[in-house]
Each structure stands twice: as structure tokens, then as C-alpha cells.
Amino acid sequence: MIFVDYFIFPGIVFTMIVAFIVSWIDRKVTALLQWRVGPPLLQPVYDFLKLMKKETLIPKGGSVTVFLLSPVISFSALVLVSLILVKTNLNGMGFVGDLFVVIYLLLLPSFAVIMGGASSANPLASLGASREMKMVLSYELPFIMSVCTILIKTGGLIDIAGIIQYQQNNGVLIGSLSGFLAFFVTLLCFQSKMAQIPFDIPEAEQEIMGGTMIEYSGPPLGFFVASRWILMALLPYLAVILFMGGIGSYIGILKYILLVVVVILIKNTNPRLRINQTLRLFWGPVTLLAALSVVLAMMGL
């Protein structure tokens, strides 16, 4: 059973299929916004398979083990998150404190990117790694604060199944003022966790040529790319679970797709910010908003 759980449903295969679909939605919506036609449905699959077939080049002077291991860490951490989230949402199977485990596991891809960039022995990659580090520093605080809002609202529930249950009984969290503020903050944090425009600063193709990814090729790059797609699929799902009561019916799926499209719209209607602007944004207004939502939650709003 564990084999099926981890590898088929809701493990690697299922996660990858959802990631492919979300990636396709991303490309298609982007294309439509930009008056282009967009790729066919199977394009992400082709891309992934192509990368799997390519040669793996390892830079001289870098740390080979870390260089090759970091994509795998990133990928497997995300599959684990997907496993926990889907299992909890569908079967109500969870464990106390799984919310914290998810938050912890969601941090791993960022660290994997930093490790991979730092072990690439390339100035552009290390620049990207240092940018990613600053990004993690900037968005984690408001994100944790908005999670605190949920904890206060639900009366100290720290398991995901409990949070979903609470919302089924008392209405979705996004409906309250503090919940909405926390949702907004979370959306911004997720946008930067996904490394999407306006926060795709660690990769910034036009500035540092892909930054942390610059030395990657073949399957390691494939796993990093797949991690990006899975993040894009998972984080809106987590937001749906935390603030909109999870996916229980067709309406849940609709909410999810709507949120994915919102992410894509933000991505396509903004330029990339500078790293200092991002830091200022997250530590200034966004943290204040998150603090406000915590205060409002304590007042019971």
C-alpha cells in the first residue's frame, strides 16, 4: 500500500500528472493573454521526457554530490507534501502537527535551489543562490504569520484535516476579514515561493541567465523544472485547503483552478522586481498586513 501511496496515487505519478496539467494551463493562459496560440496539452510531458533523455553535464570545480542531490531533494520533498495534502484532504487521514511538516517540507525546495546554485561553481549561479537566500528570508516571516492567523481563528488546530473540518462547520476562513488579509499575504508569499514573476528574481533569465539553473542540464534540470511545476500545482492547492476549505466537490476543483489562473494573471501583468524592492515589500507592507491579520484574528474578526 505504501508503494501505491508513494509512487502511484497520490504520489509521484499523480502529482506529475497534475503538475503537467497545471503547467499546460499556465502556458495556455499566458499564451492567450499574449495573443499567441499556446502549446498542445502534452507539451509539458514532451519537455520533461526530452530533458530526461539529455546528457548530464557536471561543472568542473563544483561539488558533484550536492549538485546532483539537490534536484532530487527538491523533487522528493514536494512529492511528500503532495502525498500528505491529498491524503488528508480526501480521507481525513492526517496526524497532529502535519501543517508544520508541510511548511517545513515546502522550505526544502528553496534550500535545494540554494545548494544546487552554490555547488555549481559559477558566479551567476552563486548570485542566484544569494538572491534565493534573500527571498527565503523575506517571504517566510509573513507566511508564518498568516499561518498563525489560521491557528488563532481555528482555536489552535495544527492538523490540516482539522482545519478543513473547521471550515466545513464554521464557513471558509477567507470569508472573515483577518482570513482574507492572511490569504492575500499567503498568495504573495506563494508567488515568490513558486519563483514566478514578479518574484522570479533568483532565475531572472534576462539578467543572470537562469541564475541557479545555469549549470544544470539533462535529468537534474528535469527534476528542478518538475519541482517548479509541482510547486505551481501544490501551493494554490495548499491555499485552497487553508483558506477555502479544501477540495471536496467540483466546486472545490473550480476554486483551485481559479486560484491557479489568478497566479498566472499576477505573473503576466507585472514586471520583475529588484531584490531590494522585494525585501522592502515583504518586510514592510506585507509583514504589516500579516501582523494586522493576526491582531484582527485575536479580536475575533
Binding site: 499574449q34 495573443w35 507585472n270
Partner: peptide, 16 residues
Amino acid sequence: AGHFIGYNTVWMWCWK
């Protein structure tokens, strides 16, 4: 210029 600041929508619209 839109492309260079990561704003690909401006890029595509201008070229359209």
C-alpha cells in the same frame, strides 16, 4: 524593454 523587465505581456502586445 518589457521583456527585459520580465513583463512578457508588454513584449507580445507591442509586437502585435
